[in-house]
Design a protein around this nucleic acid. Structure first.
Length: 198
DNA sequence: TGCACGATTCTCT
DNA sequence: GAGAATCGTGCAA
């Protein structure tokens, strides 16, 4: 059972923590891939300078964050990579999102390796980064705005991770965000080998 | 119309 | 630990 839309209609920080341990599934034409969510980050616009929606800035790219919760926000970065987010928030029209930073591969390993490219792709480095997991899961612009409460792209229900197994820390790659860079809005599962390196 | 830059990753050193 | 790859996007002009 995919998680219902109400799951995403909470504060982005709550959703980010709740998503840990859930199964992220993509039923693509070339096969099914799935991974357990082991690392997330919350982005809370418009007050969060690290978010694309800072200041309530609404553009063609981030428009999906202003709409329904539980939709995919996929964006292109550095001219090479994709990052996958889920829109969230307890206020309709408030642009918040949760960035999925790392997965633990569960299904479709062979396909993941194939998508990531043949060379030096070990299990532990297959999906331990926001752009790596997009490659492994076959996510790109065509998945932008997809409804993640229904197949083919969705989060599967799973038992919640206990509070003591969740590590809370600073976000990554947002050094430019002044006072917001130190916000403890990154969450990962304690001791999991598949979280991103940094 | 032009231009600077990024919620990253990989490859050296 | 540093630097390159690489281009869509956002904003100034």
């Amino acid at each position: 059972m995919p998680l219902p839309r109400t799951f995403y209609e909470e504060d982005a920080i709550v959703v980010a923590k709740s998503l840990l341990g859930k199964l992220f599934v993509h039923e693509s034409e070339s096969g099914v891939t799935a991974g357990k969510v082991v690392e997330t980050e919350a982005y809370r616009g418009p007050e969060d300078k690290a978010a694309h929606s800072f200041g309530g800035r609404r553009t063609a790219r981030n428009e999906v964050m202003f709409g329904e919760k539980g939709r995919a926000y996929v964006y292109f970065i550095y001219g090479l990579y994709w990052c996958f987010n889920v829109t969230a928030g307890n206020v309709i029209g408030k642009p918040e999102a949760v960035l999925i930073r790392a997965l633990e591969p569960v299904a479709g390993l062979e396909l993941m390796v194939k998508r990531r490219g043949d060379s030096s792709t070990k299990n532990s480095s297959l999906t331990n980064g926001p752009s790596k997991l997009c490659m492994a899961m076959g996510i790109s612009k065509s998945q932008n705005k997809a409804d993640v409460t229904i197949p083919p792209l969705y989060f599967e229900k799973a038992a919640p991770i206990s509070e003591e197994d969740i590590v809370t820390t600073k976000r990554i790659g947002v050094e430019y965000a002044a006072e917001w860079k130190d916000r403890l809005w990154r969450f990962y599962i304690k001791g999991n080998k598949f979280t991103s390196a940094k």
